[in-house]
Computed example of a mutant assay.
Amino acid sequence: MAKPNKKQPEKSVDIYCSKCRTQLFRYKKGGKGTLVKCFKERIVQNYVTEACKCPNCASEFARECMIRGAPAYKIIGGKVTTK
């Protein structure tokens, strides 16, 4: 399978925990769809101390996995919101 584009998308989004509204990431998102996965190489700012857990409420919002040969976070549905 093809790897994700090396060129970063122009659009940046802020990703928040839906439970406590704590900011988790600033992410370079491509496309118009909902957020399903976050490639680690596209994360601009990371506010998370422990992987896949919210630093404020400690709820799990994602799972670590490999997607198309690149490390990524697979987002659990309804656990995060974007702006």
Rank of each mutant, 00 (worst) to 15 (best):
Y27I: 02
C38W: 01
N46K: 02
R26E: 03
F39P: 00
K32E: 13
P9I: 00
C65I: 11
A72Y: 08
E50F: 07
I75D: 02
R26M: 02
S12K: 10
C57L: 09
C54Y: 00
K53A: 07
C57S: 12
L35P: 05
K40M: 08
A51K: 11
G30N: 06
T34D: 11
P55Y: 07
V48L: 09
I75P: 01
K6S: 14
C65Y: 13
C17R: 00
P71T: 09
S18Y: 08
Q23H: 06
G78W: 11
T49V: 04
R63T: 06
G33E: 12
N56S: 14
C38H: 02
T81A: 10
F39H: 08
V36S: 12
R21G: 02
I75F: 03
C20I: 11
T22L: 10
T82A: 07
A62W: 06
G30A: 05
V80S: 06
E50H: 05
S59D: 15
P4L: 04
E10W: 10
V13Y: 07
S18T: 04
E60G: 14
E60C: 15
K3E: 09
S18W: 09
K28C: 12
C54T: 04
M1Q: 11
T81H: 12
T34F: 08
C65R: 14
K3Q: 10
K6L: 15
Q45L: 02
I67Q: 09
Y16P: 06
S12N: 05
A2P: 04
M66A: 13
R42A: 05
A51E: 15
K19L: 11
